[in-house]
Design a protein around this nucleic acid. Structure first.
Lengths: 335, 335
DNA sequence: TTGAAAGCGGTACCAA
DNA sequence: TTGGTACCGCTTTCAA
């Protein structure tokens, strides 16, 4: 039975309380708890009992303060439920774990407005940040105040930052060439919808299409989800009924388009060829399996963690040419 | 140009260094950095410049030590790439964010051996833990030393722990009844494969099958992945070719079974009905859409976070009867 | 508006 | 084997 002394204030139980309760000094408590040798069995037991009795738990801050060894990195992603980010996150976790680092994950729920709030909050919780951001660089700068930051899938200008480039130019070219080889000339695209500027992927698509003398203007926006892909495909086909093939911003959207095509009675790939982007494992489960301009998500996550680690420790950062992930076409049943 | 004083030791830049560099006291630096009012503009700017120059970043430990407000919870899951855990994790993140808490995610890579190591490491990094564990309770106890721990999908005996129960009994009964109503009498199951003891889900299946006078013995094990589901289905059909319907341990396995059935030339649901467990969003993308005994993963994640929060703050914990998530049958095209 | 001093809760290094 | 003391880096009184 623990007799609570005084009014039961919710004060934190400190090492001091345990020491007093066990009738020893704080250092002895520390020794007992950390399994040091220089302590008598009986004393140790007494301390351990007292600690348990009082429900004592060492403060991670106090501990971290004195032995400054733990590294924690923040991972910021727009939507953990999107399998692409899941894969990146899983790789990042894996890579961090191998180094004994901790990862705090923040999901901005696809709301760019959340990014800055997250950064602010993250600031005092992690040693470095890795992730996807859509806000302006000077804002990132203001909210990270000197903390290493590695951007994924986005260029950076400020020297303080680092970024992992996604180079899909060649992969998208392959995709379009592949479609052309199959006889397609009316190729549409389902792009991003929530940004003012057209996506890089769209630029790649445009360049590739023009290279084959194909009109790159058959584009519709789609929300980043399977349902969004379905709706997008309907809109695209309504505007451009002549389309026989479609390239999408990513696999999730492609999967939705695939399903929608089926609902519209168009068989894939006979009536409509579909090629996604990302190369998610999910694509292989579809019927037909999804063709995709595939990214090595594992490499993406690892590179980001590796780089933030180097920035953190002051080691030589990886040179820009190594900080790049190339996408390659992985053709499958859908095209 | 920053002239590094002395040999360039990688010592940490502290508030003291900034203070000296700016010619003010530490407190003034603190004020400037934390945007307090009681400071002259010019002083503030000078301090900020010095801080930037030196690449100063406040220690999160020192800061946390003095203003003890941040709460961090650890989320331990076997495999972030498994969409079920992704959904749980996403919900937990969401719920934690709403409370201003941070979540450190640990992926044990499906290796039970990693659990204890993770717990040990986690111990000094978080205030409470939520997650999936397969190791024995006394081990959990030993490695968490007084830290609140909420187990998901697993019973607990020790009073220190709390757990979120998954009750699928009724849902599985519905599933079997549904299959029986469709005329199936030869119903198999693809169970877990990596545990000695049969799963709870299998027990539910057995009870439900017996309730309809159906032989519950047509069971094969499957690895927790789509490929595992495929292989499992082959094994199951080889041993019991008479089977016309199959219930699986979870949706991932079901998805693999679905794909394998197609490859074997069995059409679903005509030749083989398939019902999964979990109710993943993924199931809706399949062709045909997957029937599933669905769990409210969102509730699962939220409950766990809510409960660990109560344990943490000393608020009244939720009573056991509220800590339960019931599964219900969500029939779709595959059955 | 600024600075001095006192902790926050631990651990490490000594001396006892 | 133990305890005293000096920090770890920062914020919060309280005086100046």
């Amino acid at each position: 039975m623990v007799s609570s002394s005084g009014p039961d204030s919710a004060r934190r139980v400190t090492i001091h309380d345990v020491a007093r309760s066990a009738g020893v000094s704080r250092q002895t408590v520390s020794r007992a708890l950390n399994g040091k040798d220089e302590i008598e069995r009986s004393t140790k037991q007494r301390v351990l009992d007292a600690a348990r009795e009082l429900g004592y738990r060492p403060s991670r801050f106090a501990r971290g303060l004195v032995r400054q060894d733990t590294t924690t990195i923040g991972l910021v992603i727009p939507d953990l439920r999107n399998p692409f980010f899941t894969e990146v996150a899983a790789s990042a976790l894996e890579c961090a774990r191998a180094r004994g680092w901790h990862v705090v994950v923040y999901d901005t729920a696809d709301r760019p407005a959340e990014e800055l709030g997250t950064l602010q909050v993250i600031g005092s919780q992690v040693d470095g940040v890795v992730g996807y951001f859509s806000c302006a660089e000077d804002e990132l700068d203001r909210y990270t105040r000197g903390m290493p930051l590695v951007l994924i899938g986005r260029e950076h200008r400020m020297a303080r930052f680092s970024s992992i480039r996604i180079d899909g130019q060649e992969g998208v070219r392959e995709a379009v060439a592949h479609l052309v080889a199959k006889g397609h000339t009316m190729i549409g695209m389902l792009d991003h919808d929530n940004r003012a500027e057209p996506s890089l992927r769209r630029e790649w698509f445009t360049a590739a299409a023009l290279g084959h003398g194909i009109d790159p203007g058959r584009v519709a926006g789609a929300e980043q989800s399977a349902d969004g892909g379905g709706a997008g495909l309907r809109a695209l086909l309504a505007a451009h009924p002549e389309i026989t093939a479609v390239f999408t911003f990513n696999d999730i959207v492609a999967v939705g388009a695939l399903r929608e095509a089926r609902r519209l009675g168009r068989s894939v790939p006979a009536d409509l060829a579909v090629i996604g982007f990302d190369g998610l494992q999910l694509g292989a489960l579809m019927e037909p399996p999804l063709s995709s301009v595939a990214l090595d998500t594992h490499r993406l996550g690892s590179l980001a963690v590796e780089q933030v680690g180097r920035l953190l420790t002051g080691a030589d950062p990886l040179p820009p040419e190594d900080l790049e992930v190339r996408a390659v076409l992985r053709p499958a049943g859908s095209s």
